[in-house]
């Protein structure tokens, strides 16, 4: 990601000005319809119902909010890790076997064509104790008790990973495609085993795509609440659901804004930290 950006911006002052002009409409649009409302909402964390830090005191003192934050982060981290582990091989095959690229793109994109609710109800049909998967397993004698795959954390992760996989696959696909195809054979020529060639050559070169994808998945996971609500169990309540309730049910904009701000700060620091790790781990 960075090298490309550096190439584009290093082209002299005139083109820099014209670049600015090109991004101006989108920037203005985002500023007006996104940044200003968000700033308005977040400012209510210190102004609603009265000026001060009371809302933050409530949020940090009430154990239930911290519990919900912990849940949210756990679910998001697990979703991100699973997406990366499952998505990398798919992206690799898509990038290296041109015959399969179109088919895989189609398969990966299918979830986007159905609504979250439809998809989630489909999972209920498949995953529940007397659903298709468990009936097949029981019928074939592979298991004696149905496996609990829904209305618990497993169900949440299955549902979220399926929806979010494309966000890690496509950036990775781009990264892998951009690698000079001669590099891996060259590494082999120099005596590297495939595993070593992957770890020392391909993986480092795909770190930018990987970071982009993982960041997207992580950030999107933090805001998901329909999937955890429908596929999760008693404990799988997430902070986004609470924020929605604070506004819709209780009309407590102040606490909702404080929760959003705490979540935002936590997210940004986590992301900053992971960037730091990636940068440190990158070979020079």
């Amino acid at each position: 990601m960075e090298p490309v950006a550096a190439d584009l911006t290093g082209a002299g002052p005139t083109s820099r000005a014209s670049h600015l002009l090109l991004v101006l409409p989108a920037t203005l649009f985002v500023l007006v319809v996104f940044a200003l409302p968000v700033a308005w909402l977040l400012s209510r964390s210190v102004s609603d119902p009265a000026w001060g830090l009371d809302n933050f005191r409530t949020v940090l003192r009430e154990p239930v909010y911290l519990g919900l934050m912990r849940n949210t982060v756990q679910i998001s981290v697990a979703t991100t890790v699973l997406c990366v582990l499952l998505g990398y091989p798919v992206a690799h095959v898509m990038a290296t076997c041109p015959r399969l690229t179109r088919l895989l793109t189609f398969v990966v994109l299918v979830p986007f064509w159905s609504s979250v609710l439809v998809r989630t109800f489909a999972w209920m049909v498949l995953l529940q104790n007397n659903g298709l998967i468990n009936r097949a397993l029981l019928g074939s004698g592979l298991v004696r008790q149905p496996i609990e795959m829904i209305f618990n954390r497993t169900g949440v992760l299955i549902g979220m990973v399926q929806v979010l996989l494309p966000f890690v696959i496509f950036p990775l696909y781009g990264s892998i495609r951009a690698i000079d195809p001669a590099l891996m054979p060259a590494a082999a020529c120099m005596g590297a085993t495939p595993a070593r060639a992957f770890l020392r050559v391909q993986l480092p070169l795909t770190i930018p795509g990987l970071t982009t994808g993982a960041t997207l998945v992580f950030v999107l996971s933090l805001g998901y609440f329909v999937t955890p609500a429908l596929l999760g169990g008693r404990r799988d309540v997430v902070i986004a659901r609470m924020i929605q309730m604070e506004i819709g049910q209780f009309g407590d904009w102040g606490v909702a804004a404080a929760l959003s701000l705490v979540l935002l700060v936590a997210t940004l620091s986590l992301l900053g930290f992971s960037r730091l790790l990636v940068r440190r781990g990158r070979p020079t």
Partner: peptide
Amino acid sequence: IKDDILYWETNSQSQQMLVSGA
């Protein structure tokens, strides 16, 4: 009965849980 309860968030979900035998 903590571990024997399923919670429904939406009415259609409650219907689905009961009809499907979950």
